[in-house]
Design a protein around this nucleic acid. Structure first.
Lengths: 353, 353
DNA sequence: TTGTAGGCGTTATCAG
DNA sequence: CTGATAACGCCTACAA
């Protein structure tokens, strides 16, 4: 023991090496070992080699916890997702971790299930971790959350949506616009009876934004918007119920085109259509949102919007890294980065007059 | 400032309160504030109320970093996933976070993409966080990883798979058995020409285990196993290609049943079958694995196995918590918790002689 | 290039 | 029930 031994038992955990152990083994001071990790070029090559050997041999790993405390900035990036289990957020998370991996930052995740209150709670928890940056996936926070964000004084990124005029960096695309894109896709083909369909349990508030965008586009075209909410829990079932109901209507009052809140509901409709003697898109044209893997395989193949999920996650993380270096240089510009959400036109939306 | 001020500038971060600030405001010592958080029942009710008011007012949040350092155990549970972006692992993660949330433990995630080397690297990174527990999703680690796990001396849970005789806790189900279940499902219906189909790019080593289970069951029945590997990147496409090739074979040499490595490949086959004039399951019975949301909606609806994804994540996290209390009481029993992976029989596997 | 002193914010230990 | 003191393992600031 190199340390001054007090009368009481030391709290040192057995079996775990510290920077001091490495230093002692190498016959140098501990700060030199610290430099070996943080700025290797300030350590002589010979010593570097010796340290490397020792560290490898005993399997020393620096404590992120101690380092974070001492330096004042833990090497963590915290992200609050809205639905961890969904494919959308899974892709986002993968983009983030892939990008963060190289920089030695760890991603801390929380799940808010589309709830503002849960988001606030998650942010509060994260504050205790002194994160390097925060990634959120909505832009409407509780006042308390908003206050915390300002007080934190770290880069905050709002990913997925894109709303102008926010005080934080935005990476994503405008969801309200996506509803309009689909509406116009059908309007331009000459359709007039275009309906927007969502399931009752769609927690995703983004679906409502798309409905709004759809409604705006319809109104602009001088046509009354028509949003249907199907009272079903299961999304596929909701699509099936919707198409079933539609099959009972006379052809001339039936919607010519349906815009579904997402691809799952649309898939439910497409898969169920043959069972109620509807031929799609002849009897009704269809579009979805999200470009699920199955969408291109359905018959008819589903027209949909393809958000750059992975890229948004990746870009959000990259923005975090950029902000960190920019902050050192005193820069602080708010950026809105729009990433693509492309219209993928397939057979299902080939509208027939 | 209550602290002895040295000549040099203090490193204290502006804008962030510490436990000492709270203590000063309340006119008590900081350890009392610490106790307010960690063992409230050791603080008088009156004081508790006063502290609560102050903490709420200034918005103090204890530093997890400092606490972790002082107590020797950070309040983090680390988990290494094999494919963060997949629905399977997304569900596992959700189960874990939901369960961990109440206990104040944070989940730290890493992605290993089915690679042993990446897993080792992730574990190494996690060691620096002094995790409370580690959750892994495979049981075959590199020797170096295995050594770290032993040295760590914390609860290690291996989730998803279930292999007897491991030195760590297991939560999941035996994957090799699932292949056998499907094989027997067809054997019992009198089929003899049963093929197992996987796509070339199936990184998931678990698919190979299922193939093995299938092969064993076939051999036991005195029938030669037949594993086909379709050289396609896209899983849906692989299924389509498989069924297409099959449609060119004469009916009496064609497999009577196909077991697909997962539901995606099976869905590709089912969706493509009508395009090559095959009627399923008449011309070929089909089964998958994973019970994707779409599987029940396909026509014919897909027979598959339903692993308790969310529950496995939840149970793994719960086991962590149990281990933590058990460790205090000196217990240390290795448990193998089998969670269900049920055979869901639907139309697609109704075998016709 | 290397070292010394001290503090980061919290908790364990021992004492009242 | 409350408090004083000394760590926890590392890093910043300053010095050589």
């Amino acid at each position: 023991m190199t340390q001054k031994q007090t009368a009481r038992t030391t709290r040192r955990k057995a079996g775990s090496y510290t920077i001091h152990d490495v230093a002692a083994l190498a016959g140098v001071s501990s700060i030199t070992v610290s430099r070996y990790f943080n700025c290797p070029d300030k350590v002589s090559a010979a010593l570097r080699e010796r340290l490397r050997e020792i560290i490898d041999r005993i399997g020393y790993v620096p404590s992120q916890v101690a380092g974070g405390l001492a330096s004042g900035h833990g090497r963590v990036v915290c992200a609050v997702m809205q639905n961890i289990a969904s494919a959308t957020f899974a892709d986002l998370v993968k983009g983030m971790t892939d990008e963060l991996q190289a920089s030695g930052l760890q991603l801390l995740l929380a799940n808010a299930q589309y709830s503002q209150e849960l988001e606030e709670q998650a942010i509060r928890t994260f504050v205790g971790w002194h994160p390097t940056a925060l990634i959120l996936t909505r832009h409407d926070h509780t006042p308390a959350a908003e206050a915390m964000l300002r007080a934190l004084n770290i880069p905050v990124i709002e990913a997925w949506g894109l709303v102008p005029g926010r005080p934080f960096h935005q990476v994503g695309f405008p969801h309200i616009e996506t509803g309009a894109i689909l509406a116009r896709h059908f309007l331009e083909q000459g359709a007039t009876r275009i309906q927007f369909v969502m399931s009752q349990t769609t927690e995703d508030f983004r679906a409502k934004q798309r409905a709004q965008g759809y409604a705006d586009a319809m109104t602009s075209a001088g046509i009354k918007a028509n949003v249907q909410i199907v009272p079903e829990d299961d999304e596929f079932e909701a699509g099936a119920v919707c198409i079933e109901g539609l099959s009972h209507l006379p052809a001339d009052s039936r919607p010519q085109a349906l815009i579904f809140a997402n691809d799952n509901i649309a898939a439910g409709a497409i898969l169920h259509a043959p069972l109620c003697n509807l031929i799609l898109p002849r009897d009704c044209a269809i579009a979805g949102f999200g470009d699920a893997p199955i969408s291109a395989r359905l018959r008819p193949a589903l027209t949909t919007l393809r958000p750059a999920r992975y890229q948004i996650g990746q870009h959000a993380a990259r923005t975090v890294l950029q902000q960190l270096t920019a902050a050192q240089e005193g820069q602080d510009s708010i950026v809105e980065d729009q990433l693509p959400c492309d219209l993928i036109v397939r057979e299902s939306s080939r509208f027939h007059l």
